[in-house]
């Protein structure tokens, strides 16, 4: 199963990186969203995979009766999902506001901070 998941992760990463290499903010954002999933899956797979048994202790026992799925990566991923969602929302709004202000979603056109053909810094004192 891990082998298959590793392959899946590779595909997720490849697709998200391809999207992020685009010049269009929207495609970059889509890439970022997929990238989050890819990273979560990587973490999940690295913690090894078991089928079906969730990490929950039965009511009448103090420790799990049988081998369960690894709880640690799950805990890490759970918070990661919520945070990556927050960041994604932030990026989305940022991109939207940038589009409103600059009238473009092409990163080549977004050059307020690094304008094209910028003059030399002052050469005097």
């Amino acid at each position: 199963m891990e082998t298959i998941l590793a392959f899946t992760v590779a595909v997720f990463f490849a697709v998200s990186i391809y999207l992020m290499l685009s010049k269009h903010i929207i495609r970059i954002l889509l890439g970022v969203a997929i990238f989050g999933n890819a990273v979560n899956l990587t973490l999940f797979t690295a913690g090894r995979v078991t089928r079906v048994v969730p990490p929950i202790i039965p009511v009448d026992l103090d420790t799990p009766a049988q081998a369960t799925a690894n709880p640690l990566p799950q805990a890490l991923i759970l918070t990661a999902i919520v945070i990556s969602f927050s960041i994604f929302a932030f990026l989305l709004v940022l991109a939207f506001r940038a589009y409103q202000e600059l009238g473009t979603d092409d990163t080549d056109g977004m050059r307020v901070a690094e304008p094209k053909g910028e003059e030399l810094p002052p050469l005097g004192y």
Binding site: P54, I56, V59, L78, T79, V82
Partner: peptide, 12 residues
């Protein structure tokens, strides 16, 4: 605390 669930999921 005892079954699947918790603050994050509930909040969402």
């Amino acid at each position: 605390h005892n079954e699947p669930g918790g603050g994050f999921i509930g909040g969402l």
